[in-house]
Amino acid sequence: MTMTQQQIELWSKILNNTEPGGLLCRAVRHAAQSLSEMVNQPLQIKNLKIVAVPLNELVDTIYDNDFWDHSSSINYETETVGIYLLVGDDLPGQAMLTLSVNDALYMVDWLLEERPGTTTKLDSLGCSALSEMGNLVLSSFLNAIAEFTHDPLRPSPPAMMVDMLATVLQTAVTLIEVVTDELIVIKVDFINVENSLLIHFWLLPDPSIVGSPQKLGIGKSFSTNC
């Protein structure tokens, strides 16, 4: 089997094994568990969704249909921290964590074991803590997938940006090689018990490898509970 076939097959297995005991949910739970241990807070997994999105309408499609949890305080104009990573090896694609700047400041306090409200702006230490959080979440997700593949899966070093959510998402898309009209987007929310912290975890399979969503058996949209 060629490298590309292997990569397509792995994404296909992940995207088509979405039941609670399936590969995707197992990996998402693993990522959430690691994040929960890192911040020493229980976290819930909500709104695991997969959608096929027209490439030039990403933000509108994601925000305007039932893909988005409109009961949350975050909308596409919310000032957001995005932690962006690439995956290579057998699972080519992009991953991103997004959270509002307010939540990011609280997250830095938890990570640095400071009293909530201590951090009021993102300095280099805060950015390092958030980047490490991105690295940890994606690495934990990949660790669970690697139990299945037995081959190493590694993320790139994280990059961070702060802007409106729409701009953060659009920036991720501009880095994608345009070879198809549609893109597969996987999103899951990690929420703390008090509902005061919301982190979106995004995965975008590389369309230049996996091809169109239809090729992987992905229809318009899909959601599940892990």
Binding site: S34, E37, M38, L136, L142, A146
Partner: peptide, 25 residues
Amino acid sequence: LTALGQQAIILRAVQAGAKDFLVKP
């Protein structure tokens, strides 16, 4: 000490002489 707790990676590190392997967090 790494976030990458994957069997293939752990094995390589131990073969290269790592004394122990701890996974973050």
